[in-house]
């Protein structure tokens, strides 16, 4: 097992109290596995991504552990986490378009970043990887503003994986791109895994269709909790959780664009995470809800590798 997350609780401090963005998440990620992490806005998927590499100032680690390759990640300790960042855990942020320092040429910035992490710049390796994602070498002698959005995105992908991290978090990397570029990015990410640049990957998105293309496993989150986690095919073709079913049913066929809009198309809205209601959190919107749903459903393994948190599954 490459990554083990158990009972992770992370809260956001707000004026009106703690928002329980992650409320007891447990899952595992195997070597070489690509996990698609799916859910509506505000379900906690971005929080999960951030928690694994760098929590922002308003986030608070309340409980639970994260173990990567047998070592516990000190996710609450910003300083201690530095040893793991980039080398063990790395990130392709959703703001990749603006992630590069505007006043440094790329080559110099990469060199300075690597040196600050005690690594030397292997120019040949860097260029090989740029070739792999189809970036011309001249890019290195340009300022970010001289690159197109897609180029910046690919450059960030190359930079983030330069130190061959064990875990890569790709946070909504495709949401700002058009379909053909989305596919290219997804292919490049697959290539990174196959070339062994990264051992495993969490692909955070709200696009189930795209996830299906590259992920081995898909995990659906709802209101800060795990709803369903299964091998990609099983999840898309035979979903067990009513929420997942609604998500998948709303896609006329896999591969259709605008999956995001469909995702939002389920009637009702998720519960407030300030003071979530007891029991199953999907209850209010669930067509199958019954009396037992007043109690919180445990995560059960209904088939090998297929986990569902629902009484009706």
């Amino acid at each position: 097992m490459s990554l083990q997350v158990s009972e992770l609780r992370v809260h956001y401090r707000t004026l009106r109290g703690d928002v329980r963005a992650l409320d007891g998440m447990s899952f595992e990620l195997g070597d070489g596995e690509i996990l698609g992490l799916v859910g509506e806005s505000g379900c906690g998927k971005s929080t999960l991504g951030k928690s694994l590499i760098r929590m922002d100032g308003r986030m608070r680690h309340v409980g639970g552990r994260v173990v990567l390759d047998g070592r516990e990640l000190p996710i609450a300790d910003d300083r201690a986490m530095n040893d793991f960042r980039f080398k063990e855990v790395s990130l392709i942020p959703q703001y990749a378009m603006s992630a590069l320092n505007p006043t440094r040429k790329i080559r110099r910035m990469v060199g300075e970043l690597l040196r600050s992490r005690g690594a030397a710049l292997d120019a040949a390796e860097l260029e090989r990887r740029m070739d792999q994602v189809g970036l011309p070498r001249e890019v290195l002698d340009r300022y970010p503003i001289e690159l197109s959005g897609g180029m910046k995105q690919r450059m960030v992908m190359v930079i983030s994986t330069l130190l061959d991290p064990s875990l890569l978090i790709a946070d909504e990397v495709t949401s700002a791109l058009d379909v053909s570029t989305q596919k290219a990015v997804a292919r490049a990410l697959l290539g990174f895994r196959d070339s062994g640049y990264v051992k495993s990957m969490i692909f955070v998105t709200h696009d189930i269709a795209l996830t299906h293309h590259i992920a081995d496993t898909i995990m659906v989150m709802y209101a800060g909790r795990l709803a369903e986690k299964a091998p990609a095919d099983a999840l898309v073709k035979a979903p067990r959780h009513p929420y997942t079913r609604l998500l998948v049913d709303s896609l006329p066929e896999v591969g259709v664009r605008y999956a995001e809009r469909r995702l939002e198309g389920i009637a009702g809205s998720p519960p407030s995470l300030l003071d979530p209601p007891p029991g199953c959190r999907f209850r209010a919107r669930c067509p199958l809800a019954g009396d037992e749903c007043a109690e919180e459903p445990p995560v059960a393994e209904v088939a090998p590798g297929h986990h569902v948190a629902c009484w009706k599954a």
Binding site: Y12, V19, S41, G42, S46, L273
Partner: peptide, 19 residues
Amino acid sequence: MTTIQEAVPRERAAVRREA
């Protein structure tokens, strides 16, 4: 920004109270 802010609707009165 797919964070909590979107999940909690914020009307103007609430913003003013918060300010």
